[in-house]
Design a protein around this nucleic acid. Structure first.
Length: 108
DNA sequence: CCCCTGACTGTCG
DNA sequence: CCGACAGCCAGGG
C-alpha cells in the first residue's frame, strides 16, 4: 500500500465519481449527468467530463460515457464509436441509438 | 482574487 | 439540427 498511485491524490468526491465509471459493464452507456448523480453529485456533470479527460488512459472505461443527448466525446468520436460497437452498442453519426438511460444492446 | 475555459445540461427560437 | 443563454463547479494563468 504505501504506493502513491494517482488515486491516492484523489479527493473522496473524485474517487467516487471514478468508481461509478469503473462500475460500468460492456454495452452499458450512461451520460455525464448520470455518473455525477449516481456518485451523489447531481448537476456536477462538468466534473465528470474534466475528470475523465484527466484520467482517461487508466482503468477508466471513458468510452461508456456520453452526453445527455447521446453525443459521443468531441475529438474521440471515431475511437469511442469503435469501442462501443465492439460491445454491441449501436452508434450512428456520432450518436448512440437512444438516450443514455442505462444499457444499450442490439437485443434491447 | 479576478477572469477565462471547459469530455455538461436544459430551455428557447 | 443548430446556435445562443444561463446555471453550474474547478483548475490554471
Amino acid at each position: 500500500m504505501g504506493s502513491v498511485g494517482a488515486e491516492a491524490a484523489l479527493s473522496d468526491r473524485d474517487r467516487r465519481l471514478l468508481d461509478v465509471v469503473r462500475a460500468l459493464g460492456e454495452g452499458e452507456v450512461v451520460s455525464y449527468g448520470d455518473i455525477a448523480a449516481d456518485a451523489g453529485f447531481p448537476g456536477r456533470s462538468r466534473l465528470v467530463g474534466r475528470l475523465l479527460a484527466v484520467h482517461s488512459g487508466t482503468d477508466l472505461p471513458w468510452w461508456r460515457v456520453v452526453t445527455s443527448a447521446g453525443r459521443l466525446v468531441p475529438g474521440h468520436e471515431l475511437e469511442q464509436s469503435t469501442l462501443l460497437r465492439a460491445e454491441g452498442v449501436v452508434v450512428r453519426a456520432g450518436r448512440v441509438r437512444s438516450a443514455p438511460v442505462g444499457r444499450f444492446s442490439s437485443s434491447n
